[in-house]
Amino acid sequence: MLENLAVVLFRPKFPENVGSAARACLNMGVTNLILVDPYNFDMDKARPLATAHAKHVLENATIVETLPEALEGFTSVYGTTARTGGWRKGIMTPSTLSDVVNDRLRSGGKVAIVFGPEDKGLTNEETSLCSGLMTIPTSREGTSLNLAQAVVVVLYECFKKSLDKPFEADGPPQERPTTVQEQEALFSNLQESLLAIDFLKDDNPDYWMLPVRRFFSKINLRRNEFNLLMGVCRQIQWFVRTYGPDKKK
């Protein structure tokens, strides 16, 4: 869905930052990169930072002379700013911006997010072309972000919102929950093991097992975890049989 989202870099000063921004775009599923009047742009300096993976994003970037030219055809434009206050009111965070961007994109719009020059950002005149403004909250000790860092933070929020369901990392399939019968087998084995090491009092072990049972009731025990604990119990019982106090040295 992010094919209608564009990153606009307005007068970026360092080609290396442009390359890193291109990589950030690819990471978050955005391939439309627009450069406005880049300063001393050098593709050979930018390309290594884009890496081979995002090389096509960088090389296919549109380069224009003016911001109005870059924004032609977009239905919504949002500018980034580190300066707040004054007439710059109603400034969004990346999270709130992503809600707006997601709504615009899902309704068929084309959205541009504009990032200003690294040294001074967007001027009031440039932000006046924007539908809204966004700032990235930071520690007061360091309010300035690298251009590519800012790009990846904003696009990450947009990427999350664009997903039809929450992102889940690939991994092995989750083991099934244990059955009541398996849990009872585990409790019996645990009780035997805890008695063997004198953790439970042998006058009324069922009573002293109640806290253990309550503890496990809080856990959605999986079959692989059941196997692990059963193995621990077997090892405890073997150790006591082999090296217990009733064995002669």
Results as ranks from 00 to 15, higher is better:
71 L>F: 05
135 T>L: 09
102 N>D: 15
140 R>I: 12
79 G>Q: 12
178 T>P: 07
49 L>A: 07
31 T>Y: 01
244 G>K: 13
169 A>I: 02
171 G>F: 05
11 R>P: 08
248 K>T: 13
2 L>S: 07
26 L>W: 03
120 K>G: 00
164 D>P: 02
104 R>G: 01
203 D>Q: 14
114 V>D: 10
56 H>L: 03
238 W>Q: 06
1 M>A: 11
21 A>N: 02
239 F>P: 00
24 A>C: 04
184 E>Y: 04
116 G>K: 01
207 Y>M: 11
30 V>W: 06
158 C>T: 09
46 A>S: 03
45 K>F: 02
7 V>M: 10
120 K>D: 00
54 A>T: 01
192 E>C: 04
157 E>C: 07
108 G>R: 08
240 V>I: 15
238 W>R: 14
69 E>L: 07
148 A>M: 08
18 V>L: 02
20 S>N: 10
188 S>I: 09
242 T>K: 12
197 I>S: 10
176 R>Q: 12
171 G>W: 09
71 L>A: 01
198 D>L: 05
28 M>D: 04
34 I>V: 15
218 K>N: 10
229 L>C: 05
169 A>C: 04
106 R>K: 14
197 I>F: 04
50 A>W: 14
141 E>A: 08
150 A>E: 11
26 L>A: 02
211 P>I: 10
98 S>Q: 05
222 R>K: 15
104 R>N: 13
96 T>Y: 08
10 F>V: 12
201 K>I: 01
163 L>G: 01
190 L>S: 09
227 N>P: 01
36 V>A: 00
94 P>K: 12
164 D>I: 03
107 S>W: 05
230 M>Q: 13
72 E>C: 11
102 N>A: 05
94 P>W: 03
6 A>F: 11
144 S>R: 07
109 G>W: 11
96 T>P: 01
112 A>G: 06
55 K>D: 14
209 M>E: 12
83 R>Q: 13
239 F>M: 15
87 W>Y: 03
240 V>G: 03
65 E>C: 01
216 F>L: 15
50 A>S: 12
13 K>L: 12
73 G>H: 13
184 E>A: 15
129 L>K: 12
5 L>T: 08
1 M>F: 01
245 P>H: 04
10 F>T: 04
233 C>W: 02
92 M>Y: 11
135 T>C: 03
178 T>F: 02
141 E>W: 08
157 E>V: 00
86 G>V: 06
233 C>M: 06
205 P>I: 08
225 E>Q: 13
36 V>K: 10
242 T>C: 00
157 E>W: 00
110 K>I: 03
150 A>P: 01
173 P>L: 13
97 L>P: 10
160 K>Q: 09
65 E>S: 09
193 S>G: 09
173 P>Y: 07
36 V>L: 08
157 E>P: 00
96 T>K: 14
28 M>Q: 07
119 D>F: 00
49 L>F: 15
240 V>C: 06
41 F>A: 10
67 L>K: 07
92 M>Q: 06
3 E>D: 14
52 A>T: 09
207 Y>A: 12
231 G>I: 03
238 W>H: 10
29 G>C: 09
235 Q>Y: 00
126 E>S: 12
93 T>H: 06
59 E>K: 11
155 L>G: 05
